[in-house]
Nucleic acid binder design. Structure first.
Lengths: 211, 211
DNA sequence: ACGGCACGTGACCGATCGGTTTAGCAGTCC
DNA sequence: GGACTGCTAAACCGATCGGTCACGTGCCGT
């Protein structure tokens, strides 16, 4: 008999992976079970429904990502550099996922939320909640950059919203076109939006190339 | 016996509507048929598969939308005003759809493309093609605005990309949160990105309120 | 040593999936 | 009037869907 928590963790990981790379409705409980080496009975011992599994899976996915986000958006890092790090980390993640699956998969939250938004209030609420958490990272970046004089924007909240919308729009476009280009462009695009001085933009670009 | 072309058209319209407001996988052929008052046999007389129906449906949806897009993005309209008109038309469409369904449904192309992108090469290609068409409207807006001196950007193509990514990101967020706010903010956000003079932004805002 | 309980197993359920088949109806050309 | 064509009607297909159930199995406290 496998360790109890191992089974649950395996199901969460497998579900998050499969749903991310295909979609919620096109991946059945059956397939999640066989891919993770579990029996259906065991599945329904740990989760009351497929929906509850998905809820737990994206929660767990965020729990795993959070430390990296905290580091990338560390207050010890200059605000605009945080954006660059975030863009590069996104590219890293997407590249890795593509190597594993053959597909650029975009943002798992947006893909799931967009698919089930009108059908599962619970999943929609959970996705919205996690997106709001993500928004706060961008909010603090813009506020810090404004306070330090690196940028000059009229409305920090709106600017942060624009940044996140842009990120998610680009990630989704990457998924739809199955191309990394939108994510490769992300750093420059983010800096363009906050109106960073041209010198900073060029510096960031050449720094990336020399890596 | 119903008119032959009417049946096909009814199926296309119903499919586009249902898939938009729920999702591709959660809408069955059965439901599309009963909702449009068609029999399954008739369905498979007109379409070889559900996938082919979806392909034809988004094509038809675009065929219907195109005249409005051409008018909104008319070269006779000042470039930045085109963005405003586009944002307001988007809000109008989303508001109408919400009244009909109770949900903010976002962009049908992005919702569909994001869902089936990794599973149906044909649908993904078609969505990507239509998105590229949409991109060209924004490209010409930015170029025209740059030529007339209304804005000053370093890279018109990138700026146009950012605008469209922002639009789609906001529309998808509207779908996920089931709120119109992201779309209500769209006009101001677009103008913020192209760095329109503050006077223009304020003018646009007050003009909208007074309507 | 034993009873309870957490967990795993795999057969099974009705419903629905996308898709097929056969028959029949309405018009139309000969 | 009969053959042909375009279309619709409705029963039907195997597969798969999310979910259930009865039953083992092994670990635990007592």
């Amino acid at each position: 008999m496998a360790k109890p928590l191992e089974t649950r963790a395996r199901l969460l990981k497998t579900a998050a992976d499969l749903i991310w790379q295909s979609s919620y409705h096109s991946v059945g409980v059956e397939r999640i079970c066989e891919q993770s080496g579990t029996n259906k009975g065991s599945f329904y011992h740990h989760f009351a429904s497929k929906e509850e599994l998905a809820l737990a899976a994206i929660d767990e996915q965020w729990r795993e990502l959070k430390p990296r986000m905290d580091e990338i958006f560390s207050a010890a890092t200059p605000p605009l550099e945080r954006l660059g790090r975030y863009a590069r980390e996104s590219l890293r993640i997407q590249t890795a996922k593509r190597e594993e699956t053959g597909f650029v998969c975009g943002c798992p939250l947006y893909a799931l939320g967009s698919e089930v938004g009108t059908q599962s209030p619970q999943l929609r609420a959970k996705v919205a909640e996690l997106l709001d958490t993500r928004f706060r990272y961008f909010e603090s970046v813009v506020r810090d950059a404004q306070a330090s004089g690196e940028i000059d924007v009229a409305d920090t909240a709106r600017t942060a919203r624009v940044l996140l919308d842009l990120v998610e729009g680009a990630l989704t476009r990457a998924r739809i076109t199955n191309e990394l280009a939108p994510i490769e462009d992300l750093e420059q695009s983010l800096l363009l939006v906050v109106g960073a001085p041209k010198a900073h933009r060029v510096r960031a670009a050449s720094a990336r190339k020399s890596h």
